[in-house]
């Protein structure tokens, strides 16, 4: 039943993507209205779905990887919708944002556990939520940087071809994609760092309370912690590259894609691959 509900808005986003892809052959201005309308409809249905989740659980829907990824896709869809309306209509924003949104929703629906698998209370619950919120905000920025990176690479590839290829749609200028990417990377790093730091401190306090296996603490050798550390390092390198003139352009964009892949793996890959972790729902043996 739950997957059926998800299919409602995922299907609407899918239709919006189909309309967006149709710009290659359909030149009617109605196509733009249909694309924006369907994306907005999908977003509204998803909003109702997330509101229902929050109402049912009595908490913000960021307490499990499933909910967090759903919220992430919801925010990315909203940003995509904003750009579709804000940027010139010939720019194919939906080509890049809608597959990302659909990928996140489908990944969350089919591969990620639904339950939080934890029973946090008091200050631990509060800081746990703050930890999740920071990571979520960082993930939104990383997703945006990823989409802008793809747009940059596609546009650069197009401009390097002779004669310049016509796709039947336009892409943002290189400068615009670079600017969005830079802003998103610069915002993502401190947000992810804060989120991870709060998680580490929270885990240290919990471990001191009860030791590994008996408390909410996650030991440093846990796959989730190791992959999160790796992700942080990749983002640190990305931020460094972002400000190194010699690495501007393609290198930064490739690094952005790698960083996003790392983020996805850290967030949901450990659970999806069923690696032994004491973080989140896997602790309680919850399966997708």
């Amino acid at each position: 039943m739950d997957r059926l509900k998800i299919l409602c808005f995922a299907g609407t986003y899918g239709l919006a993507l189909a309309v967006e892809l149709a710009r290659v052959v359909v030149r009617s201005p109605l196509r733009w209205y249909a694309g924006v309308g369907l994306t907005a409809l999908g977003w509204l249905v998803q909003t109702v779905y997330l509101a229902n989740l929050a109402w049912t659980s009595g908490a913000l829907p960021v307490t499990s990887p499933f909910e967090s990824v759903m919220v992430l896709s919801w925010v990315v869809a909203l940003i995509g919708l904003y750009l579709m309306v804000q940027w010139p209509r010939r720019v194919a924003v939906g080509f890049f944002t809608l597959p990302l949104v659909l990928g996140l929703i489908c990944g969350a629906a089919w591969f990620i556990p639904r339950s939080t698998g934890r029973d946090w209370e008091g200050a631990t619950a509060f800081w746990g939520t703050v930890h999740g919120m920071f990571l979520l905000a960082g993930a939104v920025c990383a997703s945006l940087a990823f989409a802008a990176g793809l747009m940059y690479l596609a546009q650069m590839r197009r401009l390097k071809s002779r004669p310049v290829k016509k796709f039947g749609f336009s892409l943002p200028s290189l400068e615009q994609s670079e600017r969005v990417n830079r802003g998103a990377v610069v915002a993502a790093f401190p947000l992810l760092t804060a989120g991870l730091l709060i998680g580490v401190l929270l885990s240290a306090v919990e471990l001191r309370k009860g030791g590994a296996g008996t408390s909410h603490g996650v030991p440093w050798y846990d796959p989730k912690v190791l992959s999160a550390g790796g992700m942080w390092l990749v983002f640190a390198v990305l931020l460094h590259a972002r400000f190194r003139p010699s690495m501007r352009g393609r290198t930064v964009m490739m690094l952005t894609i790698a960083a996003f892949a790392f983020l996805v793996f850290t967030w949901v890959g450990v659970e999806a691959l069923r690696l032994p972790t004491a973080h989140g729902p896997a602790r309680a043996g919850v399966t997708p």
Partner: peptide, 9 residues
């Protein structure tokens, strides 16, 4: 046209 594809402003 090419200038517009590369630069935004």
């Amino acid at each position: 046209d090419l200038a517009r594809e590369v630069f935004d402003t």
